[in-house]
Computed example of a mutant assay.
Amino acid sequence: MTSAAGSIASGIGRSICLIVMLLVAGCSSYGPERPGEKMYRDVLFAAPGGHKLHMDLYVPQTAKPAPVVLWIFGGCWRFGSKGYHVNVRDLTSAGIAVASIQYRMTNTAVYPAQLKDCQAAAQWLRDNGARYGIDARRMGASGESSGGQLAALLGATEGKSRIRAVCALYPVTDLIELGSLYAKRSVGLNLIEKLLGGAIEQKLDLAADASPVFHINSSLPPFLIIHGDRDRIIPVEHSEWFFQALSAARVKAQLIVVPDKGHWFRLNNEQFAEVSRFFQVHLAR
């Protein structure tokens, strides 16, 4: 195979990988309510511009109100569902509630609408969580891929007094760098431009504002970051750069690089145990 043909084949392979990820993200799957928990589906928390946003609550039946982790799904800000691939769903077994939220997709609104929706969900939980057995004073955030980016931004904008801990799974941390990478690959760049509402070269300030790596300071909550070392959609360097910047700012942070994993994987038992311990420690009274 010639070098040019190999390059084309490689680009097509990456494109197919991205398309498959997006199609999977669009599916919905809800498990049944489990023993010892209560599930509340499609709870309305906001309606910006008349666009109704809902969350699903998974609440353990505990003697006292449970802490909560706000879960943000991924899907390039354009695809996905609050009911699919809730990677932290099993936190209820550790006495932690999970609130899986919707947010506006880029075919409805551009950034920062997505972040504002996450902030609205967090505030709704503070105002209303007690009615559902939730102690939202002890709130964490988590998300994967683009949802990991939003979880990190939520922690950065709310601060550790309101978001106590963030677990980001294979997150986007620098949209300017990712845009440059996608431009070289001739794939994926339009997804970032749809988020920003224009060509990235004309939206550099907005791209920086949407990049967690540019929001780091000592007021951030502790972070747990998990990323596969074979990720070709969001390279592992995104998490490595972010971890290094957090550490330099003396923010508590842990990075787990998972061998032989690409993008969009479920946590195994060992990895989930780390996530569970992380939130149990930081959401304790």
Rank of each mutant, 00 (worst) to 15 (best):
P35S: 09
F45Y: 15
S100T: 04
A46M: 11
S3C: 06
P32A: 12
H51G: 00
A5L: 15
S93N: 11
V98P: 03
R14E: 11
V98Q: 05
M39A: 10
A94R: 12
G6D: 06
G83N: 12
G13D: 14
E37A: 14
V68A: 04
G75P: 10
W77I: 07
V68F: 06
V43G: 05
I8D: 07
P32T: 14
G6S: 11
G80P: 05
S28W: 07
A46R: 03
S10M: 05
R89Q: 07
V59C: 10
V88I: 14
G75Y: 08
A94K: 15
E37T: 07
S28F: 06
W77E: 00
M55A: 03
I101Q: 01
H51D: 08
G74L: 15
E37P: 00
L23I: 12
I12Q: 01
D90E: 06
S81V: 03
V24M: 15
P32G: 04
V20T: 09
I19G: 00
S28C: 10
G83K: 14
G80F: 08
R89V: 04
P60V: 02
I101K: 04
A25H: 09
V69M: 06
A5Y: 11
L22H: 09
C27M: 11
Q102W: 09
V43L: 12
S28T: 14
C27K: 14
